[in-house]
Design a binder for these strands. Structure first.
Length: 418
RNA sequence: GCGACUUUGGUGAAGUGGUUAACACGUCGGAUUGUGGCUCCGAUAUGCGUGGGUUCGAUCCCCAUGAGUCGCCCCA
């Protein structure tokens, strides 16, 4: 127990860490390119924020939140996603005050109590982007493009982008009612889960793995038939822009989002080889959320991407480069007389910005040489009594095995390039 | 939350109801005097996820529990 991290959590070890840093740097670079700025919100929030933001009745809220009372008897929840927090911060700090579109991104841990699997952890990491304050479909397109170009730029192949519109408060209820009517007639054909969904969220029946394949599904009402003019126009606008940008997308009118706040555009990017956890990024428009949380009626769009899943995908495609932990020089000290001399040499090298290491275990020279070879250093800098007396250092090129003795003051003149 | 599978050393793993738990890699040490990568030699699990039980005896059988993986669910 003491030596086990809690279920669903994972240490990111040094060899992995470099991949995370690379990924995060890529994200920051890209966001800068698109004009998004980083925001960092607290890891936990008042529970109420998520109840209102994500919506009671959603799985995330009902079954997956880490909620507890703090010592002041406040109900606190570890964020299961970051959009609600960003919106809260936007309102609290009046980021709307300067007018115009507010473009933000975040990278951080999220928490959901769920059965762990590869690509599904209880503490996981998301990178996400939110654009608040503009209803123009161009923003939807920009966000989708950012997500798509990001994943492509990592080198991922076989990505599929699916888009849909889920309507707005004006037209979705109509569609929902039609669906309910339709599926009620087919209730005998529905699977157990879908009978449950019929009341809770009939839209979900559309992407059921079991019922989705059944014949009657083709006759299910399509959302296009119910869209209001505004939503239809908006969706057309998004499609036109995506086409203009030249990215491939598929319209999937069965794509729905699990969180209540989505309106109009919904999209998802999948990487099929990940199996059940193939959704690598997902998002959409949430024009109702800001008002729901207490702000003025403000349109917004965003998406989130799962970093663990992206890393898994990169690994599957062999896109994670081998670690380069090479140093330039390895100091080898022969005998106790040279120890201080060696340590001073080590320090001098580092002060001159030369990556250097030495063995602190008091081992034989032979094993120090082995360690030098393993370290990947270009040079072994050998110092013993002779060198101490003459203020020199024996330089052995570990690639060529060539060896020479030079004044210690001249070590930084060596050519450390590999 | 449901179902299935897995669980042996630092790693990959073989294995049996009963004397020393294969093998490989890794790690450590050694093969004359201050020198690596190759080779050779030696060392390296009193232990078989954890806790019970059955048995003269269990790593191998039974029960419970933990963890991981896959699918469902959900989602990033």
């Amino acid at each position: 127990m003491l030596t086990n991290a809690p279920r669903g959590t994972k240490d990111i070890l040094p060899e992995q860490s470099a991949n995370w840093i690379r990924l995060e740097n890529k994200i920051r670079e890209l966001c800068k390119l698109y004009g998004y700025e980083e925001i960092r919100t607290p890891t936990f929030e008042h529970t109420e924020l998520f109840l209102r933001g994500i919506g009671e009745g959603t799985d995330v809220v009902d079954k997956e939140m880490y909620t507890f009372k703090d010592r002041g008897d406040r109900s606190i929840t570890l964020r299961p996603e970051n959009t609600a927090s960003v919106v809260r911060a936007y309102l609290q700090n009046k980021l709307f005050a300067n007018g115009g579109l507010v473009k933000l991104y975040y990278i951080g841990s999220m928490f959901r109590y769920d059965r762990p699997q590869a690509g599904r952890l209880r503490e996981f990491h998301q990178f996400g982007v939110e654009a608040l304050g503009e209803k123009n479909p161009a923003v939807d397109a920009e966000i989708i493009l950012l997500a798509w170009e990001f994943l492509k730029s990592l080198g991922l192949e076989d990505l599929t982008l699916k888009i849909n519109t889920v309507g707005c408060p004006a037209c979705r209820p109509i569609y929902r009612r039609k669906l309910t009517e339709f599926f009620t007639e087919e209730i005998d054909e529905l699977c157990e889960d879908c009978r449950r969904r019929l009341e809770k969220n009939p839209l979900r029946i559309l992407d059921c793995k079991i019922d989705g394949l059944k014949d009657f599904m083709d006759d299910a009402p399509k959302i296009e038939t119910c869209l209001c003019d505004d939503c239809r126009e908006h969706f057309n606008g998004v499609k036109k822009l995506l086409t203009a940008a030249g990215i491939p997308f598929a319209i999937d009118n069965r794509l729905v989002r699990g969180l209540d706040y989505y309106t109009k555009t919904a999209f998802e990017i999948q990487y099929a080889p990940l199996g059940a956890q193939s959704a690598v990024a997902g998002g959409g428009r949430y024009d109702g959320l800001i008002k729901e949380i207490g702000g003025d009626d403000t349109p917004a769009v965003g998406f989130a991407a799962g970093l663990e899943r992206i890393l898994l995908a990169l690994e599957l495609q062999n896109l994670l480069p081998a670690q380069d932990k090479k140093i330039s020089a390895f100091v080898v000290s022969g005998g106790s007389a040279a120890e201080i001399y060696a340590f001073k040499l080590l320090t001098d090298l580092r002060r001159k910005n030369i990556a250097a290491a030495m063995d602190f275990g008091g081992k034989s020279m032979k094993s120090q040489m082995k360690a030098a070879a393993k370290s990947g250093a270009k040079f072994a800098l050998i110092v013993g009594e002779d060198e101490v007396e003459t203020s020199t250092v024996t330089v052995k090129n570990l690639e060529t095995a060539a060896q020479e003795k030079i004044p210690v003051a001249e070590v930084d003149k060596l050519n450390f390039d590999t």
